[in-house]
């Protein structure tokens, strides 16, 4: 293992995977430094699950290479399986087994002896607040409990790299926050995490760095802050009292803004990216007041990751004449 491999826990180079004429992955590169969290962000069909399946040895790419913990995913899949934990997009729990039995089974299949597998299962159940439900068939578990049980299954053998495919999709807000806590704890213990998500907020909360993919290609990468700064300035948002006032408002915002304003007739909202927020705000209000436009609500904020995401994926889709 070279010094570089020690620092990079997951590395993928130029992964390509096609299904017929669909290019599920079209040259994906990524790296996760040891002990860090990478958020793989993308809309439906972006290629997140395909990437995860390749990294976890479930799928062979058409071309490209990947290493996990210094092991070649294609050449030494068994060795990779020993050091990773996977929690797939759909919780793979055996409904007819209890929570305890599910984890015990996984432990035994990792080669643990009965006593170790039993102790480890109980430990994880307690850690994931499943100890009360531990001896009930998991059929009766809620979505959040199943998800936690599935994640616990991924941790049975104390993997150095944990790969989570949309760990919070389908969870209610409380379940989501609980899952975030669990992931943060994992990272605090030094585990490397690669997680996929469709939620920018989630990537923002959890990930040290983010890779945005769409249609099998990486369209942006960096920290959350770096991505946000790709959209310069701030966003000025105005809500007016009647639809008739929208054209005049848009005209004013076009004047003070740094880009074309966007109009939403339904909510009577107009927004625009501005270079110097407060100055543009005062100017816009002055101009609108002069035209007797009644402003009901006004806001000025830094772009969110959502803005970045939409500008990245949206513009791309438009340029190809879809959408």
């Amino acid at each position: 293992m070279s010094e570089n491999d020690r620092q990079v826990a997951v590395r993928a180079r130029d992964l390509v995977k096609t299904y017929g004429s669909t290019r599920a992955l079209d040259g994906v590169d990524l790296e996760v430094p040891s002990g860090k969290v990478l958020g793989l962000l993308g809309p439906n069909g972006a290629g997140k699950t395909t990437t995860v399946r390749i990294l976890t040895t479930l799928l062979k790419p058409d071309s490209g290479e990947a290493w996990v913990a210094g092991r070649d995913v294609l050449a030494e899949p068994d060795s990779v399986r020993r050091v990773i934990g996977l929690s797939g997009q759909y919780a793979a729990v055996d409904e007819n087994l209890t929570g305890f039995e599910n984890l015990y089974m996984v432990g035994r299949l990792y080669g643990q002896n009965k006593a170790t597998a039993r102790a480890r299962a109980r430990e994880l159940l307690a850690r994931f607040q499943l100890d009360e439900a531990a001896d009930r068939p998991s059929k009766g578990y809620s979505g959040g409990m199943r998800r936690r049980l599935d994640l616990a299954g991924a941790l049975v053998a104390e993997p150095t790299v944990v790969i989570l495919d949309e760990p919070t999709t389908g969870l209610d807000p409380r379940g989501r926050i609980e899952m975030w806590e669990v992931i943060k704890e994992l990272v605090a213990d030094g585990t490397t995490v690669l997680l996929t998500t469709q939620y920018l907020e989630e990537a923002d909360q959890l990930a040290d760095s983010i890779v945005v993919i769409d249609k099998g290609r990486v369209i942006a990468r960096g920290t959350a802050d770096e991505l946000k700064s790709q959209i310069s300035g701030e966003r000025l948002e105005l809500v007016v009292s009647t639809v008739d006032e929208l054209p005049a408002t848009a005209k004013v915002l076009a004047e003070v803004g740094a880009a074309e304003p966007a109009i939403d007739e339904h909510t009577r909202r107009v927004d625009v990216i501005v270079d110097t927020g407060p100055k543009a705000l005062v100017e816009a209000l002055r101009l609108l007041d002069a035209q007797n436009v009644v402003v009901q609500d006004v806001a000025l904020h830094r772009p969110t990751l959502d803005d970045v995401f939409l500008s990245l994926t949206g513009s791309r889709a438009e340029s190809e004449g879809e959408q």
Binding site: T57, L58, D78, R81, R82, A92, L109
Partner: peptide
Amino acid sequence: QKGIIDRFRSLPM
């Protein structure tokens, strides 16, 4: 269908 086989395949078994 339920992904149990995927779980098995990700294990060193």
